[in-house]
Write a protein that binds this DNA or RNA. Sequence first.
RNA 1: GCCGGGAUGGUGGAAUUGGUAGACACGUCAGACUUAAAAUCUGAUGACCUUUGGUCGUGCGGGUUCAAUUCCCGCUCCUGGUACCA
Length: 925
Amino acid sequence: MAGYQFNDIEKKWQQYWEENEAFKASLDTTKPKYYSLDMFPYPSGAGLHVGHPLGYIASDIISRYKRINGFNVLHPMGFDAFGLPAEQYAIQTGQHPAITTEQNIKRYKEQLKNIGFSFDWEKQVETCDPNYYKWTQWIFSKLFDSWYNYDTAKAEHIDSLIAVFKKSGNTSVNAECGEEVIDFSAEDWKVFDEKQQSDILLQYRLTYLAETSVNWCPELGTVLSNDEVKDGFSERGGYPVIRKNMMQWSMRITAYAERLLEGLERIDWPEPLRDMQRNWIGKSIGAEVTFKAGEVDIPVFTTRLDTIYGVTYLAVAPESDFVDQLTTSDQKEVVKEYVAVAKNRSERDRMSDVKNISGVFLGSYAEHPFTGEQVQVWVADYVLSGYGTGAVMAVPSGDQRDYDFAKHFDLPIIPVYDNQNIKEQADPRKDGKLINSGILNGFTYSEAIKKATDYIEEKNIGTAKINYRIRDAIFARQRYWGEPVPIYFDNGIPKLVDSNDLPVVLPEVDKYLPTEDGDPPLGRAEDFTYTPSGSTESYPLELSTMPGWAGSSWYWFRYMEANNDNEFVSKDAQEYWQAVDLYIGGSEHATGHLLYSRFWCKFLYDMGLVQEDEPFKKLINQGMIQGRSNFVYRINGTNTFVSHNLRKEHKCTRMHVDVNIVYNDELDLNAFKVWRPDLKDSEFILEDGKYHCGVEVEKMSKSKYNVVSPDDIVSKYGADTLRLYEMFLGPLEQFKPWNTNGIDGVYKFLRKMWNLFHDDNELLNISEEKATKEELKSIHKTIKKVQEDIERYSFNTPVSAFMICVNELTTLKCNKREVLEPLTMIVSPYAPHIAEELWKLLGHEGGVTNADFPSFDEAYLKEDAHEYPISINGKMRVKIKFPFDMPKSEIEKEVLESEAVQKWTEGKTPKKVIIIPNKIVNIVV
RNA sequence: GCCGGGAUGGUGGAAUUGGUAGACACGUCAGACUUAAAAUCUGAUGACCUUUGGUCGUGCGGGUUCAAUUCCCGCUCCUGGUACCA
C-alpha cells in the first residue's frame, strides 16, 4: 500500500502548522510587511461551498509566496457575523442568533482549516463580539462628534464648529450639512435653548438623526440603504420595498463624495469596479440658475447651461413644495389628483412605467432669466425629488425626455445649435454654433457655458455648481441582530453614551419581533436604559441597531491587533501594517462595503487615527463559481418522471434535483427515491435505459440543490488537489460554472510529483548527483515562469508550468536533490501539504514555510541555437536553426542562400528582409 | 438607453511587448502491460483537400502592417452594473 496518501499528510501538516504557530504575524519591523486580506464571509447555515475558497486560495498562494520571499505576512480571517439570516432563523425557532452564529462559525472554521489556509487564527475577529463592536460603536461616536469642513477639506471635531457658532454664527461656515439649516448669528446661537442647538448641530454631524425618505421593507420590518435595494426589491429575501418618510440615523458620506472620487485615481483596482463607484457617486458639473415665478424662486440644476435659450417650460417633482406654491386655483383639482396618483405609485411601478408620459400644468408661469419670457410650470413624475432641486428647466430640443414631454403636450421646441436635427427626436449634440440664443449666438459650446455662467453670477441669479448622485447612507435597522447604537435620549435630545461605558451590549429579548407599538425588537428588552456617570437618572437608549456594513467598514484595522482592549488598534501596529496590500473579494460589494470602508478610512485618517486614507491598495475581484443545476421533469399530476429528451411528448413541470445524486447528468434512480419521502414511489420513463437530467448554469444556492461542498472534494482527492484545481479552472476574475471534469489531471500531477521522490518500493530515493543541463533548464524555466506569473497575479498559468516540469522530470527520470528541492519550494504555495511532506523527505527541518524561494539562473535558459521561423510574404514556410546571438547580417545571408528559401522565392531578390533577433525572419519578395 | 467585461478546437483554457494560434489539462481514439478490470505508460486528436504536400481557421464585415487572437473603424450575440440623475 501507500503512494500519495493525502489524508495522512494533510492532517499531519495542518496540526504541525497549528502547534508551531507557523503563520503568526508578529510586529517584526526587521522585515518588510505584506498584508493580504480576504473579504470575510457571513457564516450562513449552509456552510462553505466550492465558490467560497476560490479567492481565499488565491490570497493564500500570494501569502505563502510572499513569506518565502522574505516578507512578514499578515493573512487573517474572521466573520461578518451580524446579519439577517440568523435573525430570521431566530424569529422562526426562537433560538438566539448568537447560538446559531457561533455554530456556523465553528463549521466554517473547520472547513477552512481542512483546506490548509495559512491564516493567523489568533487574529480572528467576529463583528458580533462585544469586544469588537465596542470599537464599532466608538467609531460611530467619533463620527457623531464630527462635522465636515470644506474650507479645510476634512472632518473636524464638533467643538470647533460650536466655537465658530459662538463667535460668528453659521453664515461663514462652509460645511456639509442638512437642507433645513437656517442662517443665524452668534447672538442667535447664544439664545437658542439646548434642544434648538442640538437640532442645528445634528444638521452638521457626520452621523445624524433626520427625517428622510427611506427604503422601507414591510416584510423585513426595517429600512434599507440604496445598495441593499435591487430593482425595487430587497437584496436579502427579495421582498418589495417602498419609499417612506421616517426619522432615521444617517451617515454623511456625501461630504466625502469628491475625495472618494479622487482617491480612485490612486488605487490599483479593476477599472470596471472603479467605474461602478464613479457612477454611484455620479458627479455632474453644471450650474444652478433661478427662475422667478412671481414671489416664488425656482432654482434648477442643469449640466447644459448653454441650452438655456431652448427652455420652453419648467417641470417640478410631484413631491416638491413648488407644487403647492405654484398651483393656481383653477388647476387645483387636476393637480391634486395627479400628485396623489404619482405619490401612491410604488418605486417599482414608477420604474417599470418609464414610457408613459404624464404631467399636469400648474397654472403658473415663470420668468426666463435671460429672455424675460413667461414659460409654463408643470408637475411631472419624470422629475425626481431626490436629485438636484426637485425642479428642472426643460430643453426639448436637447433632451429626449423633455422632447417627448413637449411633443405629448404640444409645448414649443426651440433648436439652439445650427446643426441640430430635431425632426424625429432631441439632438443633444454640442459641436455646432449657437442660434436663437440672444447673447450666446454664434458661440461654441464651451464658450457659451462660460459666458452664460458669468452672466448668471453677475446678475446674481445663479452659480456654477457640482451635483452628486450619491445619497447619505441610512445607518439604522429596525432589527435585533446588529450593533446597538451608542445613543441615549435626554428629553428627546440624542446624546452619546460616554466612551468609558462602551460597549452598549445587545440586550436579551423574549422575541425577535417588533413590539406591539411598532418599536424595533430592542424595545422588548427590560430596562434598556443608560445612566451617565455622576447622574442618578437613567435615560432610554436608541432602539435601532446598526446596518450590516457597520462592522465590515473597519475590520481590516482590527486584524492588526484583534485583542487590544485599550484601542481599536495601536499606533505601532497601525503604522507598521498600514494599508492592505492585496484585497480579494467579489465585485458585488462595489457600491456597498467597498465604498463605506473607504469613507470610514478617510474619516479615521482625518481624525489622525490612521496613516493611510485608502484602505485597499490593490484589489482583485474573483469571479463567481456558478452552480450547474440538474433538472427532472414530472408529468403533471403524476409521480412519473420523464427523461430530458422525451419531455416534450408530455405535459410536465421542471424540478431541481440534488446534483449529488446525478452523475454525468444521469440520475441515480435509487438515490432519487430516497432523496425525499414523497418521491419514494416515483416511476420513470427512460431513454436508452437511462434517465438524463436537464442542465443549467445558475448561482449556487441551497434552494437550487446545486451546492457542491469543498469537503467532498477534499475527502476524495485531498486539499492540495482542490486548491490546484480551483486555480486551474481558469482566470481568477472570470465567472465559471463548477465542474470536476478535469480534476483527475490535477490529481495525477500530484501523484506524479510524489513519484519523483519514490521508487517502485515506495522508498525515498534522492540522488545527490549533479543535475544535467537539461534537468536544470527544465527547473529554472519553471521557476522563472511561476515567479513572473504570481507577481502579475495570474494564478492559473503556474499550474500548467508545474505540470510541464513534472512531466519533463519524469521523462528524464530525474531524482536529483538539486532539482527536486526548488521544485518542492515553488509548488508549496499551491499545494502546501505535499510540499511540506516532500521537504521533510529531502531532509529539511522547520518546514518549507521558512525556506527561500529559489532564484533562477538566466544561464540555464539560454539556448545554444534558436530555431527561426522564416516567413515569406507573411506566410510561415520553413524553420532554420542559427546559433544564439548570431549577427543579423549573417543570418540574412544564410537564410537567403538556403535551399528551402530559394524554393519559395524562386530565385528572385527579396524586396525586404526583416530579422528580429532570436525570434523571426521575414522575407518580402 | 448609458457605462463596463467578454466571444479562441468536442470541453476548460494558453499565447505576458503585434512575431510559429491552440501550451497545459479533460474527453475521444489507437496501442502496451493485465486472465480481466482499475491504475499506469506510449501515440494520435482544429477543419478541409488531390495527404512525403497544401488550403482555411481566434463571433461577423472592413482597415493598418512584412506580420493581427492582439491595434483602428463598423456590426452581432452573451454577460455585469446602472437608470426618467436634468
